[in-house]
Simulated scan of single mutants.
Amino acid sequence: MPVVSPVSDRRTVVALLLLTFATGLVDAVSVLFLGHVFVANMTGNVIFLGFWFVPHSGVDMVAALVSFTFFVLGTIVGGRFARHLDHDVRLWLATAMSAEVVLLVALSALAGTGVLRYHDNGRLVLIAGLALAFGAQSATARQFGIQELSTTVLTSTIVGLGVDSRLAGGSGHREKLRYGTVLTMLAGAATGATLTRFAVAPVIGLAAFVVAASLAVFHFGKPPAAAER
C-alpha cells in the first residue's frame, strides 16, 4: 500500500521532480566521466551486462556490475528505512534522504580533492557510492505509488504518454505530469552534461543540494489538510 505523503499532492510532485532532476545530473556524470555506465537508470546497465557474453563488446563490464550490485544494495537499504520508520513518514524521509545527501556530499568532496579519481580504480568507488545513493532514493520514491515519479525510470512513463494519448484514443490523463517528468530528467541530464565541461565533483555536490531541497519540501511543507485551508 502506498504511503501517505506528509505534504499536499502538489508539493509531493515537486519534491519527487527534484529527485528526478538529481538523477539526470548524476547519470550525466557517470556516463560522460565514469566509463559510460549508468548509476541511477539501471535498464542500460542490464543491457550492458548482457554484452558480457559477447567477446570484445567494448563495454566496461566491471563498472556495470559494480553499479548494478550497489544499486540493488541501495534499494535494500531504502526498503529497510521504509519498513522500520513507516510509523512516522517525516522521520523516515528525513533519515533516508539525509543519508543520501551525506553520501553525495562525501563523494563530491573526495572527488573534488583528488582522493577519488575519475580514470582509475577510484571511479569504481564513485560508481558504487552513487549507485547506492540512487538505489535507496528509488526505493524511497517507490513507496508513494506514483508510477510516473519513480525518479529513476522513464520507460513506463513514456509508454503511458503514448497509450493514454488522444492520438491513441485515450483521454490524455496525467499527460502534464508525464511530460513534466520526462522534461525534468532531460533538464537534469543537460545541466549535468554542460557543467561537467568545467568541473565534475561540483555536479555531484549540486545533486546533493537538489536532494536536500526535496527533503526540505517534505519536512517543512504543510500537511495536506492544512494546505487546503
Rank of each mutant, 00 (worst) to 15 (best):
L116Y: 01
A199D: 15
V163K: 11
T196W: 10
L154D: 01
T194N: 00
A139L: 05
D88K: 07
V182A: 12
S138Q: 04
W92E: 14
P202W: 14
L110K: 04
V125N: 03
V105D: 07
S98T: 15
G122F: 03
V105H: 03
T95V: 13
R197D: 14
R83S: 15
R117M: 06
S98F: 07
Y179C: 03
A190G: 07
L107S: 05
G188M: 10
G145L: 09
R178G: 07
S156D: 05
L161W: 11
L124H: 01
F134S: 01
A131Q: 12
A168T: 08
L195Y: 13
E148A: 15
D120F: 08
K176G: 02
V163A: 13
I127E: 04
P202Q: 12
Q137H: 06
L126N: 02
T95H: 02
F134L: 10
R197F: 11
A190Y: 10
G145D: 00
E148C: 01
L104P: 08
L91Y: 06
R178M: 10
E148S: 10
S150A: 13
M185D: 00
G169W: 10
V153T: 13
R178A: 06
G162S: 02
R197N: 15
S138C: 05
Y118Q: 04
G180N: 09
E148F: 07
N121P: 00
T95D: 06
V89I: 15
E148D: 14
A187W: 08
M185F: 15
I127A: 04
D88T: 09
V163L: 15
H87V: 10
Y118S: 05
Q147R: 13
G114N: 07
V102T: 11
R83H: 13
L132E: 10
L183M: 14
H119D: 14
T95A: 15
G188S: 09
Q137Y: 09
S108M: 14
G188A: 12
G192C: 08
F198G: 08
L183T: 11
R178E: 06
A96K: 02
L110I: 03
H173D: 03
Q147F: 00
D164T: 11
T191D: 09
H119C: 00
A187Q: 05
G180W: 08
R142L: 08
T151C: 07
G122E: 06
L149F: 05
T191R: 10
G160Q: 12
L186M: 13
A190L: 15
S138M: 11
A94D: 15
A190N: 03
L124E: 01
A139P: 10
A201P: 04
L177Q: 05
I127G: 02
A106F: 09
A128E: 06
R178L: 00
V153W: 02
A96N: 11
G170D: 14
I127S: 05
G188D: 06
A189F: 12
T184F: 10
M185S: 06
E148T: 04
V115Y: 05
L126C: 03
A168V: 08
E175M: 14
W92D: 03
L161T: 07
A189Y: 07
R174C: 02
Y179N: 09
L107I: 08
